[in-house]
Design a protein around this nucleic acid. Structure first.
Length: 217
DNA sequence: ATCCCGAGGG
DNA sequence: CCCTCTGGAT
């Protein structure tokens, strides 16, 4: 396993490579960010940003979405995929924000996770980006990178990854680290064809060294 | 463990 | 053609 010191070094190297890393989902209010993050499940940020302007214009507030017909919501978000579940969750989520939270998006993890369609990952992103509450969201990119660098064992769950990363990184870097790992995963350490030969972390990455050795044969 | 599920990339 | 995309619910 990678040591704590090397973990911090690795994340800082990623920050040097992608200093501009930040949230890529477009939104103005916490409610709209919540919707954008819910829609981003198994979808690209580009595809989400493509539909949210019209969606937010049509449904500015929780009460607007809570009163909407499912088919109309689906029509706005169909191009994203998984649209049946997402439309259903969006409406139920807006309804619960009205009934249980006085129409205001809760700013704590327990409240957020209680909303239909909102899991720990979505809650952590909203906490960090909308409310400036320290949180470290573990998505497919973060989990893949943590395992390739052997920061965690291959069988680690998302919660285990979150526990290790939040224990090793200073709290005031959690949000930025998350976004940096996303960028690193998207442009350098991709799922399918990672660019190991040009990776600044190759010297500490067992997976990368294995891969570069294979391609050299 | 499985299902959902369109769009874009390789 | 096949794989992946800032997951969550069952």
């Amino acid at each position: 396993m990678l040591s704590k010191e090397k973990t911090i070094w690795a994340v800082h190297q990623m920050m040097l490579e992608f200093p501009e890393a930040m949230g890529a989902l477009h939104s103005d209010t916490p409610f709209h960010l919540l919707i954008a993050v819910m829609l981003s499940a198994q979808a690209t940020d580009v595809s989400v940003n493509k539909v949210t302007p019209k969606l937010f214009a049509r449904f500015p507030e929780p009460k607007d979405l809570a009163a909407a017909e499912i088919p109309e919501i689906e029509a706005y978000i169909r191009s994203i995929g998984l649209y049946h579940n997402k439309a259903k969750h969006l409406k139920a989520c807006a309804q619960k924000i009205l009934s249980d939270f006085d129409g205001v998006v809760p700013n704590n993890r327990a409240g957020l996770v209680s909303l239909p369609g909102v899991g720990r990952k979505t809650a952590n992103v909203v906490l960090g980006d909308a409310f400036n509450v320290p949180a470290f969201a573990v998505d497919t990119h973060v989990q893949r990178i943590a395992k390739r660098l052997q920061i965690v064992k291959q069988s680690a769950s998302v919660v285990e990854v979150e526990q290790v990363m939040t224990k090793r990184l200073p709290e005031n870097e959690w949000v930025k680290s998350h976004h940096t790992l996303i960028f690193f995963g998207r442009y350098q350490c991709m799922a399918r064809n990672p660019k190991c030969p040009t990776c600044p972390l190759l010297e500490i990455c067992a997976e990368g060294q294995k891969r570069t050795k294979k391609t050299a044969e």
